[in-house]
């Protein structure tokens, strides 16, 4: 789990995930929103898993994201923008994306799929509803994060979690979804 400053991004290439990125704005330090952070972590981690070396730093990547996704004053982003970013960014052409809504699935099936995919090294983008304390789910997604696995442990935005927490997150609200990114296999032409 790492919290790093905006300037430090210039020297980082594939050391994600970062738990938070602190940016100076109007002479005040504040973290960038969950959306750009999740996409930054997602892209850097997928590059790492692919073994891609393109010389771009985390700083370059975050600008690529922020150019496309506009952060509002309260640091929220439009989910339409987020999905459009996934759709239009050529980087994601290298991946097939499996969309899962755990809430609508038989629990056992969800676990089989999710754990096997994480075990294979896939990274999942979590679209979730982070509720206010004590309130019931409103069916409104307001949080993006990434989930990945390393050495048999599961991490949410780089923070180690137990699977019970994963279950609670996945099943809390009907809008909660997981997008698993699988590397496209090479296509054989005419053989």
């Amino acid at each position: 789990m790492k919290v790093i400053t905006w300037e430090e991004l210039k020297t980082k290439t594939n050391e994600a995930p970062f738990y938070g990125v602190v940016k100076s704005r109007d002479d005040r330090n504040r973290a960038i929103g969950c959306g750009p952070l999740a996409f930054l972590n997602l892209i850097l981690m997928l590059k790492k898993r692919l073994g891609t070396i393109d010389g771009k730093t985390a700083y370059d990547v975050v600008f690529q994201i922020l150019d496309f996704i506009e952060e509002k004053q309260n640091l929220s982003i439009s989910f339409q923008d987020a999905m459009e970013f996934l759709d239009k960014n050529p980087f994601f052409n290298s991946f097939r994306i499996l969309f899962l809504n755990p809430n609508g699935m038989v629990p056992e099936v969800f676990f089989q799929i999710a754990l096997r995919r994480l075990e294979k090294g896939e990274v999942a983008l979590l679209i979730a509803e982070a509720p206010s304390r004590g309130e019931k789910a409103k069916g409104f997604a307001n949080h993006l994060a990434i989930i990945h696995s390393e050495d048999g442990d599961v991490f949410l935005d780089g923070l180690k979690i137990d699977l019970e927490t994963l279950i609670k997150i996945a099943y809390f609200s009907s809008v909660n979804s997981l997008l698993f990114f699988t590397k496209n296999s090479k296509v054989n032409h005419g053989t």
Partner: peptide, 19 residues
Amino acid sequence: HLKSLFQETEKAKAAKEVA
């Protein structure tokens, strides 16, 4: 904080049993 954000539901309980 993360744990407190997500309340346990009946579905979560069922999923836990599966797990």
